[in-house]
Simulated scan of single mutants.
Amino acid sequence: MTLFELNASVEAAPLYREFVFTSSPALMRMTRLAEPTAASTTDNSTTWLPPEQYAETVLKATAFACLYFTDEGDRPLQLHSVYSPAHPWQLVGGTMDKGERPWETAVRECREETGLAVSGLPRLLATVYGLPGAQWPYDTIGMVFDGGCLVDDYLSGALIHV
């Protein structure tokens, strides 16, 4: 028996009951009574897949994280890319490594690309989603974090340019 805590609306509760859940009035706590197998189907013809099989059916995407810096004039700062003629100016960041959180990626990539060590709490500014295309076969998902303002004295010797 497996216990699930659900916060279901009044409208959604009947759906869970159709999937062989029973409910108690307190907190919509439901318990699945029978463990389905890969070959079994419930009365409503739902087929349960093993996790390995299900994983093959879900979205495959690469993820990236970057930092958005501004100068003292509140102008955005970017790096000049040496490997992407189609996108010559980019935010400081890169592709997430396996097991890495987005903020960790942004901080690591910033240190690797500029030598700048960013600290503090992450402040997410935007998320970005891209469909696969001719140049990349996967969806892309990205997070843009606030890198803060870099003062002019720092920028005069940095790799980052306006």
Rank of each mutant, 00 (worst) to 15 (best):
C66D: 04
L67N: 00
L67S: 03
Y68N: 08
F69S: 00
T70V: 14
T70N: 10
D71P: 03
D71T: 02
D74G: 08
D74A: 14
P76E: 10
P76D: 09
L77R: 00
L79F: 09
L79I: 13
H80Y: 06
H80C: 12
S81R: 10
S81H: 06
Y83S: 13
Y83C: 07
S84A: 12
P85R: 10
A86N: 12
H87G: 04
H87F: 15
H87L: 14
H87I: 14
P88W: 07
P88E: 08
W89F: 15
W89N: 10
Q90R: 10
Q90E: 14
L91Q: 11
G93I: 06
G93N: 04
G93C: 06
G94N: 04
T95F: 12
M96K: 01
M96H: 06
D97A: 14
D97R: 12
K98S: 11
K98C: 08
E100T: 04
E100Q: 11
E100W: 06
R101V: 10
W103S: 07
W103M: 09
W103I: 14
E104C: 05
T105D: 07
V107T: 10
R108Y: 06
E109P: 05
E109K: 07
R111H: 11
E113F: 01
T114P: 11
G115R: 03
L116K: 01
V118Y: 01
V118C: 00
V118F: 00
S119K: 14
S119V: 14
S119E: 13
S119N: 13
S119W: 02
S119T: 15
S119H: 12
L121E: 15
L121F: 11
L121P: 02
R123F: 03
L124M: 14
L124H: 07
L124I: 15
L125W: 02
T127H: 06
T127G: 04
T127N: 08
T127C: 10
V128G: 01
Y129P: 02
Y129T: 13
G130I: 09
A134F: 13
Y138R: 10
Y138K: 03
T140D: 03
I141C: 07
I141Q: 09
G142R: 05
M143D: 04
M143Y: 08
V144S: 04
V144R: 01
V144H: 01
